[in-house]
Design a protein around this nucleic acid. Sequence first.
RNA 1: GGAGGGAUAGCGAAGUGGCUAAACGCAACGGACUGUAAAUCCGUCCUCUUUCGAGUUCGAAGGUUCGAAUCCUUCUCCCUCCA
Length: 380
Amino acid sequence: MKHPVNYTLEKKEKHTGARLGKLETPNGTYETPMFMPVGTQATVKAMTPEELKAMGAGIILSNTYHLWLRPGSELIEEAGGLHEFMNWDQGILTDSGGFQVFSLADTREIKENGVHFKSHLDGSAQFLSPEKSIQIQNELGADVIMSFDECPPFHESYDYMKQSVVRTTRWAERGLEAHENWDTQGLFGIVQGGGYKDLRIQHARDLRSMDFSGYSIGGLSVGETHQEMYEVLEYTTPELPEDKTRYLMGVGTPAALIESVIRGVDIFDCVLPTRIARNGTTMTSKGRLKVKNATYKKDWRPIDEKCDCYTCRNYSRAYVRHLFNTDEILGVRLTSIHNLRFLTHLMEQIREAIRNDNLLDFKEAFFEEYGYNEPNARTF
RNA sequence: GGAGGGAUAGCGAAGUGGCUAAACGCAACGGACUGUAAAUCCGUCCUCUUUCGAGUUCGAAGGUUCGAAUCCUUCUCCCUCCA
């Protein structure tokens, strides 16, 4: 089948599994490895499309579940699709809603046909199935849509994980069948299996035998250590086709991005940069910097002296701190701009290092300055 | 001059005999955040101590009581009303 979303592998880094490539979508072609900012409710919180483009953002993420409940996928379809609705003319990827159903619904019932759960907005009974998720995503009209999967906790029992994974495979088949817009929307499958090597490998092979436009690795960054995550990647990415995109869902710490690229991942998404930005934490070349802290009261330096973002070119730590302390809306905007730019810039550097076959040197230099310990990064 | 009300920790404000080192809010300080129910959430917040704990508090001084932020006396300051 001819896909509307295609991956071209351009180069493999000499000493690692890192890949330099291009991801072609109906709304632009993007260099990978790439980080995708998250805009769950049809907006990357606090950012305008112009600002996102200025920082080098390519594809952004949005969410089936949230937009389905509000304002409704039919309304967005009526608006002319998600791109038109939110004034974003570059790539969009919608998550299937699987993660939301499993992460925020207390009361849910997973059945073969789909999942019964309660809306987080009003508690009303809802039902989401593979077909329903694809139908909604067809209405939303993103460039890349995701298969409806179950995302169990990493340390779920082997028996549970095994039956969950085969069900996710059956759901993947149903999603492929239900998808109607093969000319304008690529569909990605999602590999699950927790930390069980045989399940991961089997699931990757099962999905690989189906004609997806790309492949995701799901069920990570859900409570496991970084080391456990890296191990999963090491035996999972080799099972995925070389000529398709590998997407690691929900990962966004600088350390994990670098380590995952080394293990053959092409694209990422994560709420982390925008969420922590709104809470006053910034990512810098020297590690995390909590700009609200009193120590920056009279610090006239930019958040990151090595950063080229709008915030760092124009504002001091002292000023941004003041904005947070006075609860001014500009504060969260400035830190969001900075954090997103920090990650897009990091990915630019990673691509350059792959091009030059010195990714390991880059990694070492990066960690030397950034520090090896991310807050709460369980590294063993 | 007369009558009444009030003074509680950085600020605001509960508390009218023991369960009060003193609710709650704000400010301040620190932490968390990974396919976004998040401009959210969690701590600390009289002093000393890592903890246990010890010490000193509710305008001031004195008194009653086994025990007082809470009751009594005097004083200081603030507010309202009447002359």
